[in-house]
Structures are given as structure tokens and as C-alpha cells.
Amino acid sequence: MSLIEASGLCKTYQAGDIAVKAINEVNFNIDVGSFVSFVGPSGSGKSTLLNMIGCLDSPSCGELHVAGTDVSSLDQKQAAIFRGENIGFVFQDFNLIPVLSVYENVEYPLIMVQNWPAAKRRKQVMELLDAVGMKEQADKLPSQLSGGQKQRVAIARALVTNAKLVLADEPTANLDSVTAHRVIELMKSMREKFNTTFIFSTHDPKIMAEAEVTYTLVDGSIENKEEVAS
């Protein structure tokens, strides 16, 4: 069953008088619970594609359905609500809020996005922190954590709303290879535990080998799709 269906998807930017095609009529389907990577050199369109899947940007043409919703025509508020209900994000620079503790960072989407009651929030946050191995660090501030720990917290924050899909743009770019491998392993185990679809972009060959499905992007087009039997 497909979680994401893209058909004839394209994105064109206007750079002065020149129209730049960042994504050029790509087609792909991504199944529920899959572990997918988009790889390619800088400027190949990985981030643009993830932004469109994550409803942060809208396509210039084609169709894009995420979790059964045509996301190409959502306005700013509708897109925010859709993201809050369906999508979690993991960023290259972790993007934790520096003044909030680990616990509060993970709790943040439940307060600001979904408005869960306090008791339910606490249970969910502690469960996620336990799952990513950060329960003991719940009261620490992001500045007291290592890069790998920060990314674990970011993964917990992405999953805390029971997101169907987690998008991770270069999630290991700022980590050493050992930590990067552990983060990818954690994402995989979270996929197993919560049946969440993970899509990440990378240009690190070791990391892309971890994905079950890998799409290679070149100049905005999908040049290759590689599947690894699980």
C-alpha cells in the first residue's frame, strides 16, 4: 500500500530571467513502513523533493499524494496542519530548541501542534525517549548533549505525534561515521517498532547502503531506483 504517490512531479524556480528545473517530472511510489533514501550530488534536487513530500514546498506541476491527500494545493495553514498530523522531520543540524530540555523538546509538538492533555503527553514523551535511549537525559539541555544524542532526541520529536512519515534531510551529515551508523540503525528500529515510513536524503555511500529502497537523483530526475531485499 502506497503512502506516497508522485506522478509527473516537477519544480521550477525562477532565477532572474532564467527558469531552473530543480525537479523534472519524476514518478515514484513509496510504501507504508518502507525505509527509503534519496541520494545524489549537491544540487541534484534531493532537498527540493523532500520539501515537496513534506508539504514545505508545492510542486510546479504533476501530482503528489501523501497519505491519501493531494498535498499540491494545500495553503500555508492546511499544510502546517497536515505536517503536524502526518509528518515528522529530522534535520541535519538537529534543530532542537536550545532553551528547552530534552523532555520539553520532544513534548513541544504535542503542545504547539496537537494540544494533547498533560498526562497523555508525559506518557508518550517518556515512551519515545525510552525508545531512543534518551530517558536518562530527559532534563538536560541540548547544549549538554553530543551530536548523536541530539539526533536521537530529534528522532523522538519526529515520532512523538505518531507521524506516518519521517523525513530526514542529511540526518548524518554532521555526525561521525560510527554515530551516523547508530542513528540510521535507530531510525530502522523505530520503523520496526512504529511502522513509520522513513525517507532520508544523503550523499554518504555507507549510509545509503542502509536503505531498503534508494532513488538516485541527477539534475532533478530519478536516474536509478535500487531495492535491497529485506
Partner: peptide, 20 residues
């Protein structure tokens, strides 16, 4: 600005950001 981008990306609606 970067933090605003983060909270917007995770689904915080504009009126909530405004109220914050």
C-alpha cells in the same frame, strides 16, 4: 529565524507562532 522554520516545519500553525 531558523528556530521559527523548525517549529513551522513540524506543523505549528501560523497563529500559534504569532501567539508565542
Amino acid at each position: 529565524i531558523n528556530e521559527i522554520g523548525t517549529i513551522a516545519a513540524i506543523g505549528t500553525i501560523p497563529s500559534r507562532i504569532l501567539s508565542l
